[in-house]
């Protein structure tokens, strides 16, 4: 544990204490994220219970193939992040860089798919809330409370998308640190914490996918 002396803050007794504290702090932060998203899930549930048929009809406008693709992409990125933690614990630093870059690539793919989904919706006049004005083939979906479904869809996936973008920024940052050799089996807290965050982003999507695209 000789390397830890440079990363150990003076107010901690040991690097184990420091690591545990950081990890617990991250878990608490993730809990705040869960409760942040819970507000949107509550809004979804309330309106779904009120207007189940509107929600079923409106969800047909979302392409489940793109949703499933994005689910697989995010699951893969979670897998690569979990592997990167595994390899840094084994001190195999080159593999960590490769895996983190792969994660970044998956995240990028997710956002690209999301971009095409959003622009596809907008081109048919499907906007959140009062801007909701589907035309052409989609005009039949202009039902009361369909705007609520798409408000919730855009807000949920939008805030989730912001979390993906933030995650990409953080991963890019730890990739540069990994390349510069900042991490080792003795000190890898940032990779571990970023991984936890990224898995949570994945978990949120695991719920968003069936709720919005499938049922």
């Amino acid at each position: 544990m000789a390397e830890t002396s440079t990363t150990l803050k003076h107010y901690f007794v040991s690097s184990a204490q420091q690591f545990d504290a950081a990890k617990m702090g991250m878990w608490l932060f993730l809990v705040t994220e869960v409760l942040l998203f819970s507000g949107m899930f509550v809004a979804y549930a309330v309106y779904r219970v009120w207007y189940p048929e509107v929600f079923e009809l409106s969800s047909e406008l979302l392409d489940w193939r793109l949703g499933a693709l994005n689910t697989l992409v995010l699951l893969a990125s979670s897998f690569t992040v979990a592997l990167s933690v595994h390899f840094i614990q084994r001190n195999e630093k080159e593999k960590v860089v490769v895996l983190l870059l792969l994660t970044l690539l998956c995240a990028l793919a997710f956002m690209v798919v999301k971009y095409f989904e959003y622009t596809g919706k907008w081109s048919h006049g499907i906007f959140p809330g009062a801007g909701f004005a589907p035309h052409g083939d989609y005009a039949a979906y202009y039902t009361p409370y369909a705007p609520q479904f798409f408000s919730i869809y855009f807000v949920m996936t939008g805030i989730h998308g912001i979390h993906v973008l933030v995650g990409m920024g953080v991963i890019a940052w730890i990739v540069t640190r990994a390349i510069r050799g900042h991490f080792s089996a003795a000190y890898y807290t940032p990779i571990e914490l970023t991984g936890l965050y990224w898995h949570l982003v994945d978990i949120i999507w695991i719920f968003l996918f069936p709720l919005l695209y499938l049922i």
């Binding site: 949107m40 809004a43 906007f127 809330g129 009062a130 408000s151 807000v155 805030i159």
Partner: peptide, 13 residues
């Protein structure tokens, strides 16, 4: 956030 969007985009929640 939702109140903000309600005010900005009339999301109707």
């Amino acid at each position: 956030v939702l109140l903000f969007l309600e005010r900005l985009l009339q999301i109707g929640i």
